[in-house]
Amino acid sequence: MWRGYALPGTVWLAAFFAVPFYAVAAIAFGSIDPIFRNARPAWNPLSWSFGTFADVLGEVVNGQLRDVFVRTIVFVLIALVLCLMIGYPIAYHLARLHGRMKSLILLLIVLPFWVSYLMRMLAWVNLLQRDGLVMRITAWFGAEHNWLDGSPTTVILGLVYGYVPFLILPLYATLERLDWRLVDAARDLGASPRQAFWRVTLPMSRTGMAAGLMLVALPMLGDYYTNDILSRSPRTEMIGNQIDFFLNAGTQPQRGAVLVLVLSFVLACLAWWYVRDNARQQVAR
């Protein structure tokens, strides 16, 4: 009977994950209509052709797409470190707070979600442009910097700004459930506040950090509109931009579908690491 309860979720996954994913695979291993240049999906796995897949994989491993993949991963890694540096102290203090202030800060963290991501990025364009508020303030301090010159810094900061709340919330949930008596015990046994943090609090919040980093890393790796809006220069091209181009603007949707599969593989590896790490943590407890 218990298995029956899994039916709605199974149907949901089949309808909204498995079928679309199979469609992407059918496009990736299908062909292109020579006249209309649209994808001709190969629905039957027995007729799949792996030529384009091999070509694109070759470009990813040792061709012109390699730099884009490497750049995307570097951007995401830097953004993750910054997210953690910004998000951890906030989540930590939030977990230690009580009363109205806690609710207020939680509300402030959730507040950006009330405005669409696209609108928030467009707002940043206004703030960062030549006569924008940020430029005027920095000019007042005698420092002028063109933030919208297509530099990686702006894109990375955009990613951090856009996704950091997704890291704070699961981290906060973990820290709030943390047994703070263990920290007190560490202090009683002679640990300094710093030692108590590094040897008790941080290890015990590892699950929350992993969940937060996963939640942030997955959308960042496929993100394309942050770069589209804040930069759109060759130096900041991310893998999501290439997928967008091949699927929407170009005439090679098959290549776009292959890139989706390659990116999915990277994401699946991350998800596998997270699940394994989580399982180990539970066993350790």
Binding site: V68, N241, F245
Partner: peptide, 18 residues
């Protein structure tokens, strides 16, 4: 023609990927 278009698109990818 599709094969020529593919040449152009390959070039475009090389440019846009930096």
């Amino acid at each position: 023609a599709p094969d020529v278009d593919a040449l152009w698109l390959d070039g475009w990818t090389r440019f846009t990927t930096g």
